[in-house]
């Protein structure tokens, strides 16, 4: 939309549903604060909803200096067109330097629409954001303080760093769980500006007839211990061992894509490039070969135990503890040892 804007502010789209802010938005506020610190600028949280003013304080406590809050009954539930209209208008009027969204179903629906309307570059599914300089080889021009948007590509086989040197805002969606959120600082002060948008008929071309959502059964990314099963877990009974070990350890059950595709466990449990990114204190990979797609979602775990019958399985290259053996024998030994300790 613009070649250079004067603002250096970092905006975060604050995703809320039914008055609850998405975890990823709070994670992004912490990252935005870090980026704004480097840029010597401010963090602004942009929130859409209906009568959710109370949330503005939470946004400030988690790192925003300023909250822009669009209030309208048509914004009560997320819909592409009204949300995109509000966001695009604010972006065009105030020209933030950076605008980031969670790479959620909502963020990935909204961000491309806003980027297209603003003719801004957008990078999907980033796993890290940094500030850095870039010198164009073509014209030798140096662009200072660009947003370096880092993401896995080609099924996780490469890590690409993407920049938008000329067109601002620099936009990105960021994976859930990869940034660490801060403890709220209740003494933090900030400003709140309420916006009252208007909509015409074309903005309301889509209506929600019904929505059924269920509570997530699991919380993989916040669990300190995860026991995951993969393609080497070849039966329901064997997967039951994975569940039992997770239970004894007080952790969650994870899985690689192979186990999910085999129908042993629901997709919500999938760890990796196309699943959840986790960094627990302990990750036990049982019968997981360690394809790059899986490793991308768990290789920052503090301790990794890998159990595999194949001594050459790639998972062993990132494991802290290697157990070459059959998981149907090894897991029962682990359960037994833990039960003994508990006595």
């Amino acid at each position: 939309m613009t070649n250079q804007s004067n603002s250096r502010d970092v905006w975060v789209f604050i995703e809320q549903e039914e008055g609850v802010i998405a975890d990823v938005s709070l994670e992004l506020l912490a990252k935005a604060q870090e980026l704004a610190g480097t840029l010597d600028s401010q963090v602004c949280g942009l929130m859409c909803g209906y009568q959710v003013e109370d949330l503005a304080e939470t946004v400030i406590h988690h790192g925003a200096d300023r909250v822009l809050w669009a209030d309208h009954p048509e914004l009560e539930m997320y819909r592409t067109l009204p949300y995109a209209k509000v966001t695009t208008k604010l972006v065009q009027e105030q020209q933030p330097y950076i605008l980031i969204f969670g790479a959620t179903a909502i963020g990935r629906d909204l961000a491309p629409r806003v980027a297209s309307a603003s003719r801004a570059g957008l990078t999907a599914d980033c796993t890290d954001l940094q500030i850095g300089d870039y010198t164009s080889k073509k014209d030798k021009r140096t662009y200072n303080d660009l947003l370096l948007q880092i993401r896995p590509a080609f099924g996780g086989n490469i890590i690409a760093t993407i920049i938008n040197p000329k067109m601002h805002p620099q936009m990105a969606t960021v994976r859930e769980g990869v940034m660490r959120r801060q403890e709220p600082d209740v003494t933090r002060q900030g400003s709140v500006e309420k916006i009252e948008p208007t909509f015409d008929e074309s903005d309301l071309a889509l209506r929600i007839l019904s929505r059924e959502t269920r509570e997530s059964e699991i919380n993989l990314k916040d669990s300190p211990i995860i026991v995951s099963g993969g393609g080497g877990v070849d039966s329901e009974e064997s997967f039951e061992l994975v569940r039992e070990l997770a239970h004894v350890l007080g952790g969650e059950v994870g899985a690689s894509r192979a186990a999910v595709d085999a129908g042993l466990v629901s997709r919500e449990h999938q760890v990796g490039q196309t699943g959840t990114t986790v960094r627990p204190r302990l990750y036990i990979a049982a019968g997981i070969s360690g394809a790059v797609q899986h490793r991308a979602g768990m290789d920052e775990s503090a301790k990794i135990i890998a159990i595999n019958t194949d001594p050459n399985a790639p998972i062993f290259e990132i494991a802290h503890y290697k157990i070459v053996g059959d998981l149907t024998e090894v897991i029962p030994m682990m359960i037994r040892a833990l039960r003994e300790k508990a006595k």
């Binding site: 490469i158 690409a160 760093t161 938008n164 790059v292 090894v330």
Partner: peptide, 27 residues
């Protein structure tokens, strides 16, 4: 508007690792 700044091939990082024998004492 976007361009690739650089690309890194994902390399397996060899963690400091211990072999654990797959028997009850080792476990």
């Amino acid at each position: 508007p976007t361009q690739v700044y650089k690309v890194n091939f994902v390399v397996l990082e060899t963690a400091e690792s211990k072999e654990v024998s797959a028997d009850q004492e080792g476990i």
